[in-house]
Amino acid sequence: MEMQKFEEKLIQMTKPDVPHLKHEDMLANAITKAKDKSIVSWWWLSIPLYIVAALSMKTIFMPRTTLLSNLHELTSNERYASVIFFFVLPILLIIINVKSLRNIYFLSGNPQMITFLKGTWYHILILILSALILIIYSL
């Protein structure tokens, strides 16, 4: 009974109402002209991808070498740079893109799978490429 009274009190009590907001039109205008300033770019991934592509070319033109042997040679010569490009960078990109995918799924409002894939192919591609670089590095 007490609970019912409390519920009625919540429904009946007056709540603040919003009149016409004077800043509304200017804000709408500014938002529709806004540009997305994202620093996350797939170009970061182009560095390790470029190295893998160069090593693949080296494998093709130099007999008796493999992609893995060339990669191992590079990682022993350039230890710190290879850790950054082949390990840290892909992991960072995986984390950023998984977070982005979760965010996009939420902001798309229960999208159909096909619509979701169409809108996020770019993030999924980066995820796959990052995973591929991690796999090559760990071999």
Binding site: D36, L107, G109, P111, T115, F116, G119
Partner: peptide
């Protein structure tokens, strides 16, 4: 909402 309106699918909600 503005940045994501193109990804919004009306079929869900």
């Amino acid at each position: 909402a503005f940045r994501n309106i193109n990804k919004f699918s009306y079929k869900g909600i």
